[in-house]
Amino acid sequence: MAGVRAAAGVGADAAIARQNDELAPGARTGRGRLAAGRRRQVAGWLFLAPAILYLLFAFALPIAYNVMLSFEQSSPETIASFTAPFAGLANYRFILTDPTTQSAIIHTFEFTAGSLIGQFIIGFALALLFSLRFPGRTIGRSLIIVPWLVPLLVTGVIFKFLFQLEGGAVNQILLDIGLAQHPIDWLETPQLGLLTILIANIWLGVPFFFLLLYSGLQDIPIEVKEAAVMDGAGPWQRLRLVVVPIILPVIEVTVLLGFVFTVKVFDLVVALTDGGPANATQLITTWSYNLSFQQFIFGEGAALNNVLLVLALICAPVYLWLSRDSLRRSTGAGR
């Protein structure tokens, strides 16, 4: 697991990188080498060309076009045309006043916060458990990532099946052990609907948290653990004072990426509740889809998209900062 090491080593090897800069062939000078250097520049750009073209086409263009759309007044009649009449700030005014949009934004915050807390606690607990030595840990460790491999839409379908009102497995368990007297209407009640998509999302996100935190734990030097034991620290103290501070960088990255994934969630909700009942489980993503592709008001949808984009990009500076060493490592060999 080469990459596993790297997870903990965010920023560890900047010094080596700098050293290697000097060894990098491109950094050398000399008459004969100058032409070679230029040739290498050209080759480098050629190697990059497909990626640059792709980024412009699949990211820059859609984002720019989305901004343009958000200032247009679109309707079913303008779907087929590339542009529509200018709308000024009307679409943003809609975002600020429409009650369903407001509740979708609030639900997104609740959903994201709930998911991160649930995924982190369960993922971390599992990571600690599997760091201990016991029979079957290797196979168990690899089975835990199963939920992550299931397509998101399929996860939604599976949970819809499990949380059915009648004949659903969850209700059957609750009835069997006497926790409920009547089947619970998970998917038919606004608050429970939100809870159900939260549970499904925690299920599918735990493997990611587990794997990252687990690999972080593996990178704690044994000497550190032993020293803590010798100092007579109890398990809780060891966790709080030794383990957490050491893997803090990993925790930061994991939570950050978890946030980015969760804010984007779409497939799961579409399959599980489709934003229902009565739009009570719409998130920004699903409601934006509804505005654009079901009501065909692309302008309003695009405006909401921009809200989502800003929300997601809030973490960009943090992300870049956490990856700063990797960024600086512009040439030369790393590890």
Binding site: E188, T189, P190, G276, P277, A278, N279, A280
Partner: peptide, 8 residues
């Protein structure tokens, strides 16, 4: 749907 779901 809102009335049946109990949203309103």
């Amino acid at each position: 749907d809102s009335a049946i779901a109990g949203t309103a």
